[in-house]
Each structure stands twice: as C-alpha cells, then as structure tokens.
C-alpha cells in the first residue's frame, strides 16, 4: 500500500484564538514496503503527520491516500484505516490496561472482530516477534520491566497485523541495547512480513541505520526527501533544521581532512566505519 500525501495542511483549533498551524502543504510519497524515517526537531509536525496516516486526524486542506483509501477534509469515516495502519505512540507502555499481557495484546485483534482463537494465535505470534518469553503471557503487564512493557505494548499493535506500521519515537527512554534490539526486531519483521514501516525520530543515527528513505520536516514543512547517503551532502542545513549529522558521518568528515585517499562517503553507521578503518589499517600494515 503506497502512501501518497498531497498538499496536506493541518491547523489545530482553526478559527479560534488558539489556532495553531502544524503542517503546511506537505507533499510526500512513501512506496509500499519501504522503511521510511520522518525526522524533525521538536515541533516540526512529525506527530501531526503520522496521526493523519493513522486516520486519527483529518487534513484541514489537501488529502492523503493510503492504498485505495482516500482521506480529505470532508471524509466522514476514517475508521477504515484501522487495522491497516498500526501506530506505536510515544511511551506506548502507558496504554497498557489489561490484567494479563496476553489479554492486553488481544485487545486490538478482538476489536478487529477476530475470533478468540485467531486472536490467541496472533498474541502468541506477536509475542514471539517482539521477543517476549511465552511465560509472561499470563503475567500482569504492570509487573514487567520497562523494556518488557514497551515490547508488550508494541506487540499489542503488531498483533493487529497492520500493513503499515508507524512508530513514534519508539526508543525514547530505552537504554542503548534496548533501542537496538527493538529496532532490529522491527527491521527483521518488516522484511519477513513485507510491511511498510514509518519511523518518527529525531535521532539521525537511528534513521541512518534502519531507514531506506528519509523525510525531514521543519516547522510544518517538508524540507528534504532522499536517501540516507544524502545526509553527507547536507552539512550545515541539518543544523539549521535543529538536527545533527550521525556520529559516523561526522567522524568520516574529520578523518577525511587528513586521509589520502579519503574514506568513502557512504559510511553511515559506526559498524561500517569500524570495518572501513580496520581494512585501511590492514592495508597500511602490508604495503
């Protein structure tokens, strides 16, 4: 399901003194099956944008199309998107409410009208996807550790088996290992289920490591669309948008001031960079 967004504008509380413009004329296209990263500083309109994709907000002007469902300012019923688009909001563990982990994960599937049997199957599958041990299924979600709670909440969304998965800063508040594990799982699952993943983040590291497309928002406008490798050519502009280059990119830039021949400008992650430096080191030892 491709996502096409045309001239999307959203104004909160339009026509009142509290009016606030969150998005202005955003055009973008996310092809089916891609891992897209929407990046922007705080207040750039990221959350507003994804709430449109999730069918939770309607555009003030413009429209968007997800698969063959079109949503414009006059669309009455956007609930058709439910189940097709899954959203993991910030701190999703704050939405856990059931007595047991399994019941909480089953909430979404049951709302989709699935039978208890099928819901159960999906619960098991989703727990496996996020790496939650089976024996936690009958535990209260409030007795889990922070990382496990986050996974249980993500499983609750995955159990609806959406075609499009939207993650709003899913790693906020997790430790570095937890971050990697969660996003690695998502990346793996995306390939396995051929779903589209939209990652909202302000971390360039995460975007560069996992995404195959980047969309940068700044003050409610889309200012850039491209591939992770394009990050190398942007330099100062990122800072202007309140963002930072990935660490690896910065290091390559510093090293290249002294290295001849320079390192290739496609090293986006620390691991790639490490490999390149080791290779260069070996070269140097055996001329």
């Amino acid at each position: 399901m491709d996502i096409v967004i045309q001239k999307l504008t959203h104004v909160y509380m339009e026509g009142t003194p509290f009016e606030q413009r969150a998005l202005t004329g955003v055009d973008l296209r996310i092809p089916s099956g891609s891992f897209a990263a929407i990046i922007g500083a705080t207040g750039s309109g990221k959350s507003t944008l994804i709430q449109h994709i999730a069918g939770l907000l309607k555009p003030s002007r413009g429209w968007l199309r997800i698969g063959n469902i079109e949503i414009g300012p006059d669309t009455r019923d956007s609930s058709r998107l439910r189940g097709k688009v899954g959203v993991v909001f910030q701190y999703p563990e704050h939405q856990l409410f059931e007595e047991t982990v399994a019941k909480d994960i089953a909430f979404g599937p049951l709302n989709l009208g699935l039978s208890a049997l099928e819901a159960n199957r999906r619960v098991e599958r989703a727990m496996e996807w996020v790496g939650l041990p089976r024996e936690l299924a009958s535990r209260s979600p409030f007795h889990l550790s922070g990382g496990q709670m986050r996974r249980a909440a993500v499983a609750g969304v995955l159990a609806m088996e959406p075609d499009i998965l939207v993650l709003d800063e899913p790693t906020a508040g997790l430790d570095p290992v937890g971050r990697r594990q969660l996003l690695d799982r998502i990346a793996w699952l995306r390939r396995k289920r051929a779903m589209t993943v939209i990652l909202v983040s302000h971390s360039m590291e995460e975007a560069a490591r996992y995404a195959d497309r980047l969309y940068i928002l700044h003050r409610g406008r889309k200012v850039m669309e491209g591939l992770p490798a394009d990050l190398f050519t942007m330099g100062d502009r990122l800072a202007k948008w309140g963002l930072e280059e990935p660490e690896a990119v910065r290091l390559v830039r510093c090293l290249n001031e002294r290295l001849n021949p320079p390192l290739p400008e496609s090293l986006l992650t620390v691991e790639d960079l490490e490999e390149a430096i080791v290779a260069r080191w070996e070269e140097g030892k055996s001329p």
């Binding site: 709430q51 999730a54 939770l56 439910r82 189940g83 688009v85 899954g86 959203v87 909001f89 999703p92 704050h94 939405q95 409410f97 909430f107 979404g108 709302n111 989709l112 609750g156 969304v157 609806m160």
Partner: peptide
Amino acid sequence: KIMKAQRARGADFESGGLYRRAKSYIP
C-alpha cells in the same frame, strides 16, 4: 493521548448503548 492510542488499536468510544459505551472507557 490515551484515547487516541486506544482508538488506533480499534477501540470505539462512540457507538453502542450506555453500558457498552461506559465499558469502552475502561482502557
């Protein structure tokens, strides 16, 4: 915020009788 999140999980706060609607607010 919570209502939005549960709505994204398919919760329905608008339809049904009084009892069902009250129950739908538990999440």
